[in-house]
Design a protein around this nucleic acid. Structure first.
Length: 331
DNA sequence: AAAAACTGCAACCGCCAGATA
DNA sequence: CTATCTGGCGGTTGCAGTTTT
C-alpha cells in the first residue's frame, strides 16, 4: 500500500498516534527517551519511548522547538532583531539559516517573531517586508550598477548586487569575487551555501543602523555617488556573513577620491559593504586582490566607513571601535 | 461583564532532498 | 534504477490568552 511518507497527518492517523499540544507527561517521556537513546532516529521514538503515542516527526519538532536544553527563550534582543532583519533582507524566508546565526533560537521561533512582529513593524514604517524597500518605491530600482534579482522558485525577496560579490568558503575565508555578470542564481546558491551557516559568520548590525535598518551614513555616502536615482537596498551595502559588495567596477567620477576603480583603492567601496562582522582567519580577498591581515582576525568587527583608510597602494587599515586598528597588507 | 477581535505561539501540513533497500 | 524511508524546511492553522469594543 502506498503511504505518503513525510506526511505527518497520514502517519499519525495510521499509527493512531496523538496530535495536538504536548502534555508534561509526554515531554517527560520524550526527555527520558532522548537521555537514554540520544537524538537521532526519530522514527523509532514511538517504539522505544514507553507510552509515548507520538510520531517521530512530532517528537523531533517538540525536541527542537521546546525541549532542547540550549534554547534561549524570552524576548528577542535588539541585536537579534537586527540580525534577523538584515539576514532576511538578503536571504528571505530561510528561517533555518537565519536561526543558525542565532544560537538558542529556533527557526520556528524566528518565523513566528517575523510574522507577528517584525513584518508589521516594517509595514508600519512604510517598508515592504518582502523587499525591505519603501513600499511605494517599487519601480525605481534599476541602473547600470545595481541589478536586482528575483527568485523564480521561491518567495525570496529581492536582493541586490553591485559589481562585485565576495564569498567565503567553509573555513570562513573569503574565496573569490564575482562580477555583476554572474547569474543571480549562482549568487544566491553561493550565498546560501554551507558557509553561510558557519557560526563564525555571525553578523551583527548594531552600531550605526537607524531604526529602519538602513545605515544613514552609508545612505548619504551612497547618494554622493552616481546612484542618486536608486535607494540602496541594505543588502547591497551591508552584506552579512562574509558577503559584501562594492561598486569599484563602476565608472564613478565623484569628488570622493576613494571611489575610483583602482583595485588597491578600496576604502570607501570596501567599507560600504563591510561594516560589522565576525569571522576568523588571516587571508582575505578584497576586490580582486589577496590581502593578509597583520594578525589573525577573530571576533567581531565593528567599524564605520570612515574608519577604513588606505595607507598606500597595498595596505589599508580598519579601525575597530575607534581605538584599535587592524592592518591589512596586499600580498 | 460579555462578546468580538486580536495576538503570539505551538504544532501540524505538505513538499522536498538525500539515504537506503 | 526505482521505490521507500527519513529528516528538514517553510507555510499555515488553530488554540489560548489578551485586549478592545
Amino acid at each position: 500500500m502506498y503511504v505518503l511518507m513525510g506526511r505527518h497527518s497520514a502517519c499519525c492517523v495510521k499509527q493512531k498516534l496523538r496530535k495536538g499540544l504536548w502534555s508534561p507527561e509526554e515531554d517527560e517521556k520524550l526527555l527520558k527517551y532522548i537521555s537514554r537513546f540520544g537524538v537521532g532516529c526519530w522514527s523509532s521514538v514511538p517504539k522505544h519511548a514507553a507510552g509515548l503515542q507520538r510520531c517521530g516527526k512530532s517528537c523531533r519538532l517538540r525536541w527542537i522547538n521546546y525541549l532542547r536544553p540550549d534554547l534561549k527563550r524570552g524576548l528577542f534582543s535588539q541585536q537579534e532583531e537586527e540580525v534577523i532583519l538584515n539576514l532576511h533582507q538578503v536571504i528571505g524566508n530561510r528561517w533555518a539559516q537565519i536561526a543558525a546565526q542565532l544560537p538558542g533560537r529556533t527557526d520556528n521561533e524566528i518565523k513566528n517573531f517575523w510574522n507577528s512582529c517584525l513584518k508589521k513593524k516594517l509595514i508600519k514604517q512604510g517598508i515592504d517586508p518582502n523587499t525591505h524597500k519603501p513600499a511605494t518605491d517599487k519601480d525605481h530600482v534599476k541602473d547600470k550598477n545595481i541589478e536586482y534579482f528575483t527568485s523564480s522558485s521561491s518567495s525570496m525577496p529581492i536582493a541586490a548586487e553591485l559589481d562585485h560579490v565576495f564569498h567565503f568558503n567553509n573555513s570562513g575565508l573569503m574565496l573569490s569575487s564575482s562580477s555583476s555578470s554572474m547569474e543571480s542564481g549562482m549568487i544566491r546558491d553561493t550565498f546560501v551555501s554551507k558557509s553561510f551557516c558557519d557560526p563564525l559568520f555571525l553578523v551583527e548590525f548594531q552600531s550605526v543602523m537607524d531604526p529602519l535598518g538602513y545605515n544613514s551614513n552609508l545612505l548619504a555616502q551612497f547618494h554622493q555617488t552616481n546612484y542618486e536615482t536608486s535607494l540602496p537596498n541594505l543588502a547591497s551595502i551591508d552584506h552579512p556573513n562574509g558577503y559584501f559588495s562594492d561598486h569599484s567596477g563602476s565608472k564613478q567620477t565623484t569628488n570622493n577620491s576613494s571611489s575610483t576603480t583602482n583595485s588597491s583603492n578600496m576604502n570607501t567601496s570596501l567599507s560600504a559593504g563591510f561594516q560589522h562582522m565576525t569571522f576568523e582567519g588571516e587571508m582575505l580577498h578584497f576586490n580582486g586582490i589577496n590581502v593578509k591581515s597583520e594578525e589573525k582576525c577573530v571576533g567581531n568587527w565593528t567599524h564605520n566607513m570612515h574608519d577604513v583608510q588606505l595607507n598606500n597602494a597595498s595596505d589599508f587599515n580598519i579601525s575597530l571601535h575607534g581605538d584599535y586598528t587592524h592592518v591589512f597588507h596586499k600580498i
